[in-house]
Design a protein around this nucleic acid. Structure first.
Length: 1069
RNA sequence: GCCCUGGUGGUGGAAUUGGUAGACACGCAGGACUUAAAAUCCUGUGACCAUUGCGGUCGUGCGGGUUCAAGUCCCGCCCGGGGUACCA
């Protein structure tokens, strides 16, 4: 054979391995360039032709950069934890480590055959203890840090504790769910357990209750993927939403920085857009809507309603305590009475209650909205026996602030006391999220539309539902909640046409119109976004509109688009867009435009203390626990129910052996099956494992220094490699991996470990390769198969057939008979003696028998052909169907290319003759084109250019070294084996990877003439050649005088002549 | 539903900044070589009309618009693919 690719490819793969040709050094005088492929999961099916697409592109670029004089880091490893290996383990009992090891070996073999220039010395695997040691280590760091919003970075929890000890959390501005203010005294008096619980609200990784897909029959939690229509894919059992205590990552702390971080990154706008939407920053306001059910508080009326308006205690205690409270109100002390007479009836501008039941205490006076209790000491009655101090502490824990006055202060300095109370009430601002149940807090980006709010909607999970639902509505509400419980978020958002909801029986007050509005529940409101409650503006929001129509609720118009008149909304078919226009029917903002209206309303609600300006993010904290076996164990143990981190010296905490890869009978995760799964001291270890993204979030950093067992990576290695210059992978990672990695990187950056704030400088998203399936048509009820062209004469059933027994849509009928026992006796109805198959483009999948595996192609055509063909298929970023038909063309081209260097006897025929100008022109035109193409990652056009170049050199019969040697370097990133072989045959001693990239000499490319397309009214009619430097006026004259032009002008004189030098001539008639 | 993305011959695609639509390749047809096949080489190949030749009309998912000029820009639709928070 002329071009023996099998031999050549084997030879050079062995050479590269032996010489470690692609080993990257951490120290070099060369500039660095870091090229990375997205971490592959080694699946059991092995590599299919879709996988290498990105790898080939990144490999071409790596090799190109080496030729350009860079020290290139191009590593590869395995994201080895994952569900498929665990599923296989559950089914077969085989340890997932064995499955994974086997799959990796197969991957490696396949990767090697394609001739990638990876530095295999740097390989990492997420399931390797020496690797996950650092995943666990990072988790500990996350646990030991909180996010300081003042400095805008992660800082140590121990520094936070020091602040708490000195001054409480009053001056701390952190990303936290700890909303109540506490003092140093309160902190210092807490038990360790209480302190730990409180710190959970600050740590960057924390335990909290979150909703999961729970399948009781399987005893396990399922991924959204594993649930279809509320049933488990495996087994078809019912799946319900269940709350479970799990680790979360406080990624929301970084929301703003994740949003800002794009600025200087070379990512596509679309992927930035996806991340922006995912993070979902919106500006608006939080506004409290008061609930009006049982309009007056039960107690101030004396006798009262069955259910208290404000749940400041639990119902059991309430009934006991309220009688005492009433009793005490009748016999106040003198001081209490004096104070009450001065503060009652809103005299201070605040509605203060007396003898109010709070938990299991009765407070003298309380201002509920701001959680402030006013106590007067020295009571004559002693119904509550506890010490004032401990009482204060307990109330503090409930989030109340207690201010005390003595009898004397009240009796002799009432003015002073009132001033103090007033300033206290005015100054205290409740922290965000605090909710006593007396109001429903909503978030809105459009406060200007509050005047148009005609009802409210709560998500079915909203905690206030149980306390506001009226007795009459109770049954209906419960039925609805039961139904809504198991609907996934996606279903809830997707099925917008299906309007469901239920009325609670309760009403709220519109804070601006003061009208009573009904409170509904509907699953179109999501619990995960905003406050889980919305103010509905049916006139200007499509979903609110649909809901209002369905349940016959009022639809007041409040925004008037510019140039329109107010309309009767009952005639509307849909809501009206309200982004621009002026406010109508809107009280004090009537007449303002939307922008001013928003500002005016926010200013108003802030002044009135019923809301505040607010920036809301859609980004939610990431759930970090998985109830699985095959994942990183948490370096966590539990003491008194509180989690503690293992000492770093105990890392890695290795994954224990278990007898089965299933949950325990009691529903505990598989690790609960491990023997002695506890610390040396006997404390139980965490039984959950980490999710897939744990190990893949910082792997690119570990590649910089993968064998370091002292630290995650050395400062020197990181300072040299900085971050990834080029990252290639699928766009499906846009919201998962790419956000988690950025978060993880920013955290390590805050700790001063890595020097770059962003991990991936340039990102390219390769498109999917779809499969091209072949179909055969069985005549229904027979074993006869009819060819595609005549199938319509029969009633047929289309069956997917293995694409490997079909060539150019012609079925190999013999192979078909042998393919499956069912078809052994198949008969065929042929067209012209052949069986033509139908075809379809769809997902590449085993079940559709359209999987193309690269190994067979490498055997048949060689790796270089496969590499160039995959690039030739089309633009890297686009999805495209896989079809092997075209590979022949690339194979032909490669052999043609080989023949430029060889004669009929396969002997080198390259001469030292001087090349002609025409030959140089072909070479330099190609250098220019290929270089431009590679810089813009347009690999398909580069391959075309190589083909054109080869055709032209072939026509010129050129075999000259001056041309052929640079051309070998030019093609080496694409066809590395071929070019190494040619390079060696040309007499070079070192690997071609050390050769410098050829540079285009523009002087060969100068054109003296240009062939102008002559068009009339934009339609090209003929062409004329003119000197490149010909003056526009001369061209115009020459064109108009031309006989062909006269024909098109038909005697008319042109209205206009447009001449763009070296582009076009257009004559307007 | 929402967000992102794509739609050009029989097929994959090219047209990089608004300037000759269909480069390059597959497939197909015809031819050369051969006893034959494979391989290789040559010619043709968007559709329609005309055809002895010259040629003409239409044409980049659909409908409008901007422009001397639109695959490319703008508006409104249709269809495919991806993501939608535990697949990786």
């Amino acid at each position: 054979m002329d071009y023996n690719f099998n031999e050549i490819e084997k030879k050079w793969q062995a050479y590269w391995k032996a010489h470690k040709t692609y080993k990257a050094e951490n120290k070099s005088d060369k500039p660095k360039y870091y090229v990375l492929d997205m971490f592959p999961y080694p699946s059991g099916a092995g590599l299919h032709v879709g996988h290498p697409l990105g790898y080939i592109a990144s490999d071409i670029f790596s090799r190109y950069k080496r030729h350009k004089g860079y020290n290139v880091l191009h590593p590869m490893g395995y994201d080895a934890y994952g569900l498929p290996a665990e599923q296989y383990a559950i089914q077969t009992g085989q340890h997932p480590a064995i499955t994974t090891e086997k799959n990796i070996a197969r991957y490696r073999e396949q990767l090697d055959k394609i001739g990638f220039s990876f530095d295999w010395d740097r390989e990492v695997r997420t399931c390797d203890p020496s690797y996950y040691k650092w995943t666990q280590w990072t988790f500990i760091q996350l646990f030991n840090h909180y996010y300081n919003l003042k400095t805008n970075k992660a800082e140590s929890i121990s520094e936070l504790v020091a602040i708490f000890e000195k001054e409480g959390n009053r001056n701390v501005n952190a990303s936290t769910t700890q909303l109540e203010v506490f003092t140093a005294e309160t902190w210092n008096s807490m038990t360790e357990k209480q302190q730990q619980e409180l710190l959970m609200h600050y740590r960057l990784t924390y335990l909290s209750d979150t909703m999961v897909n729970w399948c009781p029959q399987l005893g396990t939690v399922l991924a959204n993927d594993e649930v279809v229509g509320g049933l488990s894919v495996r087994g078809g059992y019912p799946v319900e939403r269940k709350s479970m205590r799990q680790w979360s990552l406080r990624i929301s702390a970084y929301a703003d920085r994740l949003l800002q971080g794009f600025e200087n990154l070379d990512w596509s706008d679309s992927i930035k857009e996806i991340q922006k939407n995912w993070i979902g920053r919106s500006e608006g306001a939080e506004v409290d809507f008061k609930i009006t059910k049982n309009l007056s508080p039960a107690l101030s009326k004396g006798e009262g309603a069955a259910v208290p308006r404000y749940h400041t205690t639990n119902p059991l205690d309430w009934n006991v305590l309220k009688d005492h409270a009433k009793e005490m109100r009748k016999q106040p002390t003198e001081a209490e009475n004096v104070l009450w007479q001065n503060i009652r009836a809103n005299q201070l501008g605040f509605k203060i209650r007396r003898q109010q039941v709070i938990s299991n205490y009765i407070a003298d006076f309380v201002y509920i909205s701001k959680k402030i209790i006013i106590e007067v000491d020295g009571k004559i009655h002693d119904f509550q026996k506890e010490q004032d101090e401990s009482r204060t502490q307990e109330l503090n824990k409930l989030g109340y602030e207690v201010i005390r006055f003595s009898n004397e202060e009240v009796l002799f300095d009432i003015e002073g006391v009132l001033t103090k109370i007033k300033s206290k009430l005015e100054s205290k601002v409740l922290s965000f999220g605090e909710d006593l149940g007396e109001v429903i807090r909503i978030f809105t980006t459009r406060p200007d539309t509050i005047f148009g709010v005609s009802f409210m909607v709560l998500c079915p999970e909203h905690e206030v539902i149980s306390s506001i639902t009226t007795a009459e509505q109770k049954a209906e509400v419960e039925t609805y909640l039961q139904w809504a419980k198991n609907r996934s978020e996606r279903e809830r958002q997707a099925e917008v046409n299906k309007i469901t909801g239920v009325f609670t029986g309760a009403f709220a007050i519109n804070p601006l119109t003061h009208e009573e509005i009904p409170i509904w529940i509907s699953d179109y409101v999501l619990s995960g976004y905003g406050t889980g409650a919305i103010m509905a503006v049916p006139a200007h929001d499509s979903r609110d509109f649909a809901f209002a129509r369905h349940f016959n609720l009022p639809i007041p118009q409040v925004i008037l688009p510019t140039g329109e008149q107010p309309e009767d909304t009952s005639l509307w078919k849909e809501s009206k867009d309200s982004k621009e226009g002026s406010c109508i029917n809107s009280g004090f903002i009537t007449g303002m435009n939307v922008k001013d209206g928003i500002k005016a309303v926010i200013d108003f609600v802030e002044k009135e203390g019923m809301g505040k300006r607010m920036i809301n993010f859609r980004l939610r904290d990431a759930i970090f626990s998985r109830q699985r076996y095959w994942g990183e164990p948490f370096p966590v143990y539990y003491k008194e129910g509180m989690p503690y981190m293992l000492d770093e010296s105990k890392l890695p905490l290795e994954l224990p052996a278990v007898d089965k890869y299933l949950p325990t009978e009691s529903g505990e995760p598989p690790l609960a099956r491990a023997k002695n799964w506890k610390t040396d001291e006997g404390f139980p270890l965490e039984c959950n494992t980490m999710p897939g993204f744990a190990g893949s979030s910082a792997y690119y950093l570990r590649y910089m220094d993968p064998r370091n067992d002292k630290e995650i990576f050395s400062k020197e290695a990181n300072t040299y490699w900085q971050n990834v210059d080029l990252y290639i992978g699928g766009a499906e990672h846009a919201t998962g991996h790419l956000i988690y990695s950025r978060f993880w990187n920013k955290f390590l950056f805050d700790l001063g470990l890595c020097v770059k704030d962003e991990p991936f400088q340039k990102l390219i998203n390769q498109g999917m390769i779809q499969g091209r399936s072949n179909l055969v048509y069985r005549v229904v009820g027979t074993n006869q198969f009819v060819s595609y062209g005549i199938k319509n004469n029969f009633e047929t059933q289309a069956i997917h057939v293995d694409v490997n027994i079909v060539d150019a849509d012609i079925l190999d009928t013999e192979k078909f008979r042998n393919w499956m026992p069912d078809f052994a006796n198949a008969e065929f109805i042929l067209e012209n003696g052949k069986y033509h198959c139908g075809w379809e483009v769809e997902k590449m999948s085993k079940s559709l028998h359209n999987v193309q595996n690269p190994d067979d192609l490498v055997v048949k055509y060689g790796a270089d052909t496969l590499r160039m063909y995959e690039m030739f298929l089309g633009p890297l970023e686009q999805s495209k169907p896989w079809d092997t038909k075209g590979i022949e063309g690339v194979f032909r081209f490669i052999r043609k290319f080989w023949k430029l260097y060889h004669d009929e006897n396969n002997a080198l025929c390259v001469t030292d003759e001087k090349a002609t100008a025409a030959e140089f022109k072909v070479l330099h035109k190609t250098i220019k084109k290929i270089t431009e193409d590679i810089e813009r990652f347009s690999f398909n056009t580069a391959v075309s250019s190589f083909m054109i170049c080869t055709n032209e050199l072939n026509d010129l019969k050129c075999h000259k070294r001056e041309i052929m040697q640079p051309l070998a370097v030019l093609i080496s990133p694409y066809a590395p084996h071929l070019s190494e072989e040619l390079w060696e045959r040309l007499g070079n001693k070192e690997s071609i990877s050390t050769a410098l990239y050829p540079i285009c000499n523009e002087t060969y490319l100068v054109e003296n003439t240009f062939n102008y397309p002559i068009s009339f009214n934009g339609k090209t009619r003929f062409q004329l050649e003119f000197p490149s430097d010909m003056a526009i006026a001369d061209i115009e004259k020459a064109v108009l005088e031309h006989p062909d032009a006269q024909k098109w002008l038909e005697g008319k004189s042109p209205k206009k002549v447009i001449i763009v030098p070296k582009k076009i001539v257009n004559i307007v008639i």
